[in-house]
Amino acid sequence: MMKTTNLMIVGVGGQGSLLASKLLGRLLVDEGFDVKVSEVHGMSQRGGSVVTYVRFGEKVYSPVVAEGEADFIISFEKLEGARYVSRLKEGGKIIVNTQQIDPMPVVIGAAEYPENILEELSAKGIAIDAFDALALAEEAGSSKAVNIVLMGRLAKYLDIPYEKWMEAIAKSVKPQFVEINKKAFDLGYNKE
């Protein structure tokens, strides 16, 4: 049986991970995969650490990704990219927006933001693709398009044709935002 691919989309509540998972889900179903997407709603949405699991393959049972299972962790924020590193599969990759959003314990001085956390993880041999997705989103025309920049980057690593992503974007966002999002996708996809 074809192996199941495990993704985690992580970030800070309110950053737009639900649109990313909606886009992915639609794309993967259209591609003929069995898919499970496990979302977070409710309390933890309010600026807390949020996780969405996306699993696809021939037959998917569990809706969640456990320790050592994630092929990709796509993170909207630097610290959150590090928070779930134990879920990463050996040889898996973290795709991370280097934006820094201080969690409340840091804001009030009860903890320090680990500024060099990604470098520390890299030094331990974790594969990390880190870049300023917020800047690319703003270049595309909206700071809200970070999610699509990150999807563009993910697309580089997945075996799904570029045109299929474009079709999924057109189906997932409102018509007036399609161009901005396609541009955001390209900026993530084509980044050096």
Partner: peptide
């Protein structure tokens, strides 16, 4: 499955 060691990080409560 083998899993990377989880660094101790500041929590991010809602």
């Amino acid at each position: 499955p083998a899993a990377a060691e989880q660094p101790n990080l500041p929590v991010r409560p809602p």
